[in-house]
Amino acid sequence: MKIEFKEVSFEYRSSLLPTHQALEQISFQIGPGEIVAIVGPSGSGKTTLLQHLNGLLSPTSGQILIDDQDLHTQPKLIQQIRRRIGVAFQFPEIQLFEETVFEDVAFGPKNLGEDEAKVEQSVRSALKLVRLNYNQYEDRSPFHLSGGEQRRVALAGILAMNPDVLVLDEPTVGLDRASSDCVMQVIQTFRASGKTVIFVSHNMDLVATLADRILVLENGKITFDGSRPDLFSNNKILVRAALTHPQVVSWMQSLAEKGLPVRTDVYSIPDAKAEMDRVLRSDL
């Protein structure tokens, strides 16, 4: 699926409050098989942007094209799109409501009109993706699970709809390592099947580990659209957009400052270890 924003602007308007321009002239294209991270200061418009992706908000001006069709000129298209673009907002687990994990994950597929056997199959494969054992969890109440398990059930509910695009707002907030790893794996598996992931995060280590491409939003405008090395070597933008270096990068930079010839465009712990191995051992 191809998503294109063409000069999208959005204003929050209300009779009681001053108008707030939340997005200004946003343009970008996202194709299949990409993992795109959206970063930027609190209040810069990240969540507002995500809310445009499945028609929860419509632009004040500009166009959103999904596979070259204008989302807002055809009301029926929005319904279709919501099936194909799965969105998990911050703390999606607060929307869990059914009595059992099975019923909660099955809610979407049932609404799509799938028959019983197909629903069960969708639930099984979604729970497998988030690494929750079907037999162990199907009958449990979502309200008696840990925070990490609840988040995974909420994600499974979206995956069970088999969307083409996954949109996640701060997907790992509050999760421990096991659950974070699981969410990261879901994102990578999703992309590996040629689908698209768009996520918002303040966690630069997560962004550095996952994103093929990063958009920086500041005051409702896109001020950067590029790769990890281009962003994390651009101190000016990092400072201005209230961002930091990923910790792996700051570690490698500190070694470089001490005169070791290490690369600093390294984003994961295993890669950092390999790079240190290479440099420290080679100049013995």
């Binding site: 200061p41 701060e170 907030v173 509050g174 303040h202 209230a242 961002l243 930091t244």
Partner: peptide, 12 residues
């Protein structure tokens, strides 16, 4: 309880 979870790195 995780008061920085939604904050940007500078505010953290």
């Amino acid at each position: 309880d995780e008061p920085t979870s939604l904050l940007d790195p500078k505010t953290r």
